[in-house]
Amino acid sequence: MSRSAPSSRGSVLIERARIIENHRVAPEQFRLLVESPRIATRAQPGTFVHVSCDEDGWFKRPMSLLDAQGDLLDILYKVVGRGTQHLSTRSAGTCLSIMGPIGKPFAPDPEAPWIIAIGGGTGIPPLIFLLERLFASGTRSRLAFFGGSELPFPLETQHRATPFIGIPEGVTQSLLRLDRLGIPAALASRSAIQGTYPGLVTDLFKSWLRLLPEPPTPGTQVFSCGPSAMMAAVQALARDMHFGGALCLEEYMACAIGGCAGCTVPVTGPDGIAMKRVCVDGPVFTIGTVLFDNR
């Protein structure tokens, strides 16, 4: 909780953002597209925004970004409580107060032989943002995506056209927006969604590692976002395989700017265990540092 570097002064903006779209894409899941030109210009994969869902006496809600292009912020959110319920009723043309971008972005190693993204549920969007930015940058790393959800996927799926060696037979579904870029993607669900792996996304990932003729070499990076149990499993697999990478965490937030220390999580550092704020010390943390046993 030390002083932020002077260069961070004024780095977070507050914008009155006009809603372009706010519609249901799957049960309990909504797509929010807002015009927020100054925040959109600065947003990077992994950073998040703090959104006023209800102007009347409720806190803003932290939300990850699916994309930031031109003047627009693209957000996928799940209705989980009063704030997001209220947000889901907001119409196009009305305005929201949005604060952002907040937090540290993903920082993939340009030399990594593979960059593998593993997302669960509402943790999927920032990983799509990461992969699409990496693709657009012309990365030399091989990219792959594994996604898990118990609800219908909020992003359009299709029968995979991009070859994905090592994926079990019958696991045929990919995400449209990754498949059309040629980024191999495979999906898992325990909700009997056709063409998905019938189990945990981490089991799909393990299966892929076993079946792949040439497993990713050390130096490979894994980026993950989603439920804690999933990320703990990803962390353990990465440790066993000597992969690097990072986890993008969620926690209840109040200020989202580093003031209240309400969103801290235990991490290991050079001086032992420390409580780090998800909002400004994260939300992206080095994969091996997050302690899940203490949470």
């Binding site: 909780m1 002083r3 961070s8 002064r9 903006l13 400004v280």
Partner: peptide, 15 residues
Amino acid sequence: SGCVGFGEEYTRIEG
């Protein structure tokens, strides 16, 4: 106390 860390946190916000 307790809402603004050790003083600099809110200066991240423009304005």
